[in-house]
Design a protein around this nucleic acid. Structure first.
Lengths: 134, 134
DNA sequence: CCGCATCCGATTGGATACTG
DNA sequence: CAGTATCCAATCGGATGCGG
């Protein structure tokens, strides 16, 4: 019981268990784990593409023409290391490599849906959005 | 109709309307708007704190002791410019400044909840997670 | 108490060119 | 086709110290 966290009364649906009771960005915190999954520019777009089914490297490039090879490579590499995407290589001829979501990767779907919904909600807000901040 | 997007059949609950039919990270895309709201280290933690009610600058620092003044300042500034947080200053004595979520800011709650849930789901996955990618 | 100014190392992502 | 290798500018976040 070091780190007594002030008089925090934790909101049960915002922070349902101990794993979220942290006072700093902690890789073990579920929120950080989810953020890590979608982290990085282009990542949600790559995930969206793969939600439709397996794709090859060049199909991904074609779907996202402005995404550079390097960044695509990095995104795939990262998602693979997180076990969210898997690579399947057919060593025949013509040899073919495809990337697809793992079961864990599929579980990101509700999060993408919620991101979209949240964005729509924010958009419809009466916002003097770019007012000066004094 | 420039940019014909291959033979994309859009998944209706993943991309419910035209705003999400983009092939690059686009500030107008709802997903990007939601990501922008929670973007940056510590941001979700600051939002979590404010979900409980208004707090002063130093109360935020106390709740998140390892967050530096500078970064806290930047986070608050950004959230204010996005109209997600508002500043209220009482000019009496003692003068007091509090930060609280705007109605738009409150709308981030379901997203934080979904992030948490997603993180839990990912955690419970049988993952040979750090297997070599070779 | 509520911040701002400055400095700085690390990470990011894009451009370009090249390889198995 | 499926990537790698370099290089580089910009952004980020943490540390420290100062100011209203």
């Amino acid at each position: 019981m070091a780190h007594q966290t002030v008089s925090h009364r934790w909101d049960i649906d915002l922070v349902p268990d101990d794993a979220g009771r942290t006072d700093r960005p902690d890789a073990e915190c579920p929120v950080e784990m989810a953020l890590a999954a979608i982290n990085g520019r282009w990542t949600t777009l790559v995930l969206r593409e793969l939600m439709h089914g397996p794709l090859s490297f060049s199909e991904l490039r074609a779907a996202l023409p402005q995404l550079s090879d390097k960044v695509l490579d990095e995104r795939i590499r990262r998602l693979r290391s997180q076990n969210l995407v898997e690579r399947r290589a057919v060593t025949g001829f013509p040899s073919r490599v495809t990337y697809s979501l793992t079961p864990a990767g599929q579980q990101l779907r509700p999060l993408l849906v919620e991101l979209y919904r949240t964005g729509l909600r924010l958009r419809h807000n009466p916002s003097q959005a770019h007012a000066p901040l004094a």
